[in-house]
Design a binder for these strands. Structure first.
Length: 487
RNA sequence: GACCCCAUCGUCUAGCCUGGUUAGGACUCCAGCCUUUCAAGCUGGUAACACGGGUUCAAAUCCCGUUGGGGUCACCA
């Protein structure tokens, strides 16, 4: 086991977004590639916004994606497992308190008595004067008596970290290379809030330190937190992890991806019946490339080829069309058995079959077979397959318009021909149809197209002879005799 | 606004580090082939180095600047 320890640390204030999923994925891939440890930590220090439902949802999304964690909450989210727990920040108060006390004792931090309202006023003023606002350090050097006096007035305090005024903070970013931020652009930031809970930057450092995280891989939007965290890692005596800031995922308008761009949470893609392997594959391609022309990867292949060295520097736009293509490719990768296992529940959900109907399930297997690559998304299954399971299927408007009285007359004759076929299958149905076409002096296509419509309601689909064979002689004859036409 | 990040087809990207390519691939779009139809598949096509200066025999590639886009500026994470 290597000493590589990475983590994904979502805050349970909503669903798992594709941006977060991509971050989780890259951490997971790196851990699997390096035979390291992947830690999942729930950052629920925001009392107002964190919900248990969100935690559950995130855990479910992670599991759906196949991103299993070595340490973290148990699968049901009720408990923790691993040597560095607990993995819910809300259960780690004792640790934050301990380090906060140390910061205070060593004068690395100080109590600040400014109220949110006061700070807000200062911010407004700075804005009005077109000045930059950074906390001005007015509580930085309060004397013992001054502190006592404020406390006597019932003022609550927050704990602010004393940041250096001079010099700079540097690190070598795995993605961006050498980084240097001037220390004077880093303000004295709040480590412990008025409610006694740690802020993100404080809790993250304590936890990453205690959990012995070796690499912090996260979004670009965290770059500005990094100097604060590095400073604190150092002051607290922790080994400083390596940092890698990955590019953001944007919507088609170039803005950070969000709900208004359409589906943006993992759960939505699951509900829309995307293959999780396809989402994983597509997400991996956003911000990373293998360096050659391969684009379709199984998860297994990704864990072998992934490399931090090949992470991109620039933000990427999420493209639903490319995802759809990758999804279709993964559908082709599935065995007939796997595809059937995925499609069956969808057919059942659509009310086209009973869950325990083994015959219907076998039939779906046949239908899927003749459909072939025409099913590029599992969501298409109900519409494409309805005619094989029910007489209540949709009629394609275009095909219906082409189906005239002459076609109907032809279908009546075809019905009788089909009724006479013995040993009804694709080959015998084809022979009978072609014979009838010859007899009537028609081209085969003149029977084929109306027949497809009469039997399946569709304009397109598999070989019509396969359709006939699969729908079955009895139903074929019925539908040819009395084709459904739009009202 | 300040600080930071980024910059190759519409989109995802290879090429950049270690200057010399007809700047490659994929999605989308278009055309053709195949097919009873559609899809798939196959073949072909349209389409990019943001701009300006350097350095160099030679710059997508190295340097500087400009412009553009994004991010951060909370007792949110």
């Amino acid at each position: 086991m290597s000493s590589i320890r990475v983590r994904f640390a979502p805050s349970p204030t909503g669903t798992l977004h594709v941006g977060g999923a991509r971050t989780a994925l890259f951490n997971w891939l790196y851990a699997r590639l390096q035979k390291g440890v992947f830690v999942l930590r729930i950052e629920d220090t925001d009392q107002e916004r964190s919900t248990d439902a969100s935690t559950q949802q995130i855990l479910r999304s992670m599991q759906w994606l196949g991103l299993d964690w070595d340490e973290g909450p148990t699968e049901d989210g009720a408990d923790s497992r691993g040597d560095h727990g607990p993995y819910f920040q809300s259960q780690r108060r004792d640790k934050y308190d301990e380090f906060a006390a140390r910061l205070l004792q060593e004068n690395l931090a100080y109590p600040c008595y400014c109220t949110p309202d006061e700070l807000d006023a200062m911010r407004q003023k700075a804005k009005a004067e077109k000045r930059d606002f950074g906390y001005d350090g007015r509580c930085r050097d309060l004397s013992h008596d001054e502190r006592k006096e404020r406390e006597a007035r019932g003022r609550t305090s927050v704990l602010r970290v004393r940041t250096p005024d001079e010099g700079s903070i540097r690190w070598t970013d795995i993605v961006h290379g050498d980084m240097e931020i001037a220390a004077d652009t880093v303000e004295d930031w709040v480590a412990v809030k008025g409610d006694g809970f740690p802020t993100y930057n404080f809790a993250a450092v304590v936890d990453d330190g205690l959990m012995e995280i070796s690499h912090v891989l996260r979004g670009d939007d965290h770059i500005s937190n990094t100097p604060k965290q590095i400073h604190l890692f150092r002051e607290l005596g922790f080994r400083i992890p390596k940092f890698g800031h990955m590019p953001m995922i944007l919507g088609s308008d170039g803005k950070r991806l969000s709900k208004r761009h359409g589906a943006a949470s993992v759960e939505e893609f699951r509900d829309e019946n995307f293959l999780s392997a396809a989402l994983v594959n597509y997400l991996a391609l956003l911000g990373w490339s293998p360096g050659n022309d391969q684009e379709v990867f199984t998860v297994q292949q990704l864990t072998k080829k992934f490399s931090l060295k090949r992470l991109n520097h620039s933000a990427a736009v999420f493209d639903p069309e490319k995802l759809a293509y990758i999804n279709a490719e993964h559908l082709k990768l599935l065995s007939d058995k796997q595809r059937l296992a995925m499609a069956w529940p969808i057919l059942v959900d659509a009310g086209l079959a009973e869950a325990d109907d083994g015959q219907a399930r076998a039939k779906l297997g046949q239908v899927l077979k003749i459909m072939g690559a025409r099913v590029s998304h599992l969501n298409d299954v109900p519409a494409y397959c309805a005619a094989y399971f029910s007489d209540d299927y949709e009629l394609d408007a275009e095909a219906a318009a082409e189906f005239d009285d002459e076609a109907q007359a032809h279908m009546a004759k075809l019905a009788e021909a089909m009724a006479k076929v013995e040993g009804f299958d694709a080959a015998s149905a084809e022979a009978a149809l072609r014979a009838l076409a010859d007899e009537l002096g028609l081209k085969a296509g003149q029977l084929i197209h109306p027949a497809r419509f009469a039997v399946s309601g569709q304009k397109v689909g598999p070989s019509v002879f396969d359709v006939l064979a699969t729908v079955g002689q009895e139903r074929v004859v019925q539908r040819l005799r009395a084709p459904r036409r739009p009202a």
